[in-house]
Design a protein around this nucleic acid. Sequence first.
DNA 1: ATGAAAGCGCTAACAA
DNA 2: TTGTTAGCGCTTTCAT
Lengths: 359, 359
Amino acid sequence: MRPAVHKHRGVTSGNGRRPVQLRDVAAAAGVSISTASRVLTGSGRCSAAARLAVEEAARRLAYAPNKIARALRAQSTRSVGMTVPWLRNPFYAELVEAVDVFLERVGLDLVLADARGSWQDEARRVNALVSRRVDGLIVVPTDHQESAAALAEAARHIPVVLLEYEVGELEADYVGIDNGLGIELVLDHLCDQGATSVRFLSSAISNSASRSRLQAFWKGTEERNLEPGEPILGRFTTKFGKEAVLRIIEEGPMPDAIVCASDVVALGVMGQLRAEGISVPDDVMVTGFDDIVFAELSDPALTTVHQPRRRLADVAVSALVSRIEGDDREPTRVELPPHLVVRRSSLQPPRIVEASSPA
Amino acid sequence: MRPAVHKHRGVTSGNGRRPVQLRDVAAAAGVSISTASRVLTGSGRCSAAARLAVEEAARRLAYAPNKIARALRAQSTRSVGMTVPWLRNPFYAELVEAVDVFLERVGLDLVLADARGSWQDEARRVNALVSRRVDGLIVVPTDHQESAAALAEAARHIPVVLLEYEVGELEADYVGIDNGLGIELVLDHLCDQGATSVRFLSSAISNSASRSRLQAFWKGTEERNLEPGEPILGRFTTKFGKEAVLRIIEEGPMPDAIVCASDVVALGVMGQLRAEGISVPDDVMVTGFDDIVFAELSDPALTTVHQPRRRLADVAVSALVSRIEGDDREPTRVELPPHLVVRRSSLQPPRIVEASSPA
DNA sequence: ATGAAAGCGCTAACAA
DNA sequence: TTGTTAGCGCTTTCAT
């Protein structure tokens, strides 16, 4: 069999010129393709002369390796996929950012996908990421049950780490916070402020955190002799928060406090309460969960449970990396402690003044 | 040359089992690989029998094509890359979502990357996307000048569409809004409300929109006999909004209105004003730009310039797709009209009451 | 130290 | 209609 003749592609239509390839670098450096490859990947021995020639040629030609070809050959894309329930929720966006930082640190590219609030979309995105051969997956799942199928299938091929929410029946590493503790912190604080009746707002498309938070709500109200109104379950959107307020108003007496399992919900709640002429915290106290940047900026500023995004991301990335490297121990489960950030939305007089201008 | 013997890879470490490949489907269906390929890609003729057998086999084995291999062969990944200046800014997140929707509609995958506020990171991400061989790029650039180099290089290989901001010296399609008009709408309204002095807050890492908005501010204040304070330029973050307020206070008399070129800035401004005991809109009016979801929920609700995300995304995706399909006409430049959303942050008495509970 | 050659999993041109 | 074959651009034995 004679050596293959390298036929160049014809001119590409439009603006694309042929990218410079390894063979161009090799030719320019006067070495074989394999030598060029060795130099550039840093694997295997090679003479100093070859090294210099290849590096110079690569630089001069602005060579950028075709990662598709490299991935096919190496059976690894050096990338990890991530999906979140809904990117427009700033909490998830901030989580993504934190993950991105840690992935960059270990030299992996992030390939991000948005489930846009639907587990069907999530499943499609997860499948697409697997087909694109990401080396691993960090998933903030949309649904405790519905997310299971696609993730289980993905997990047969690549490591999957669950972030924030667990998924029933799925054996995978998980990193989140202690949701029960978060709710307890809120309830303790509300008791301190003299609340006796509280209402709980969370997402229904049940993720595991909602479950834990709801459970903690039931248990916590009982233990503290708080009167729990019927929980209202929807989704983690401002719209849901608004609607829930309408329902609360309709249903009867305003509770002392509205406990929201998400800041965006709480922000929606406060917006609607204001529209209805109901004052926070005078008429009703409101608390959130997550501590997104807008929680501090609302008026009144929102009391909320702070989630340590950096540490969550750090643990998630570390876990995934060690799985990618072949670690096959039992699935890990990590719960980080959240902390309460008290702001004006839940403070009763005598009030603690946050800032005072020099009189 | 005898037919290649297909050697299976050894067991993969950890949890990965060998994904089912086209040859498995072909074998199961009792046809050749190429027939299987033809059936599944829908290209070329094939008998009904073959079609049925292959489809059945593919379904039974849960075959998912290796998109890396397909991409290498087809010289197309059926994906488009997108970068935004900072994903944690809800406006960009909402823009991404809109783009995602339209891309899905035309069967392209979105590969999203976050520049995290730095043009260096942006450049790295753009390079990575090109190396990953996305078929095109939709970029909301971070910087009018600094973004140029990496984008120009990318544009030599694949179509690039600029969204929201233009980039100097870069010949590429652009879709944004009429920023001048946006500022004029704001200034007109402020005049109506009796403002005579206004201050402008925008981003310094200059993107083209900031430029247009600043320019419109100078021109507009002059035309309307408004007294313009010195513009304060920083970045599109809540933090910058807060800092700017401190500076305004320090520098002297409070203007009648603070015009922000971004909602997140305006939200930071209002938060800090409140902390300082300065009332909006009584002591100073505030306006934003973008109309993110939190603009409506702030107290007072924020008057802002609404950007039509859907239409922006639609135009951007359409332009990119036609470029990918080979369209090589002159670069296009589209400016969509924004509109003003008046809310309480800029209303002087007699006030329009937004909602009233039945007394 | 270096080059030839064999694929990674798939598509498509060509032959039968 | 179907199978054979030649790659896509790269990495990596295996000889030399």
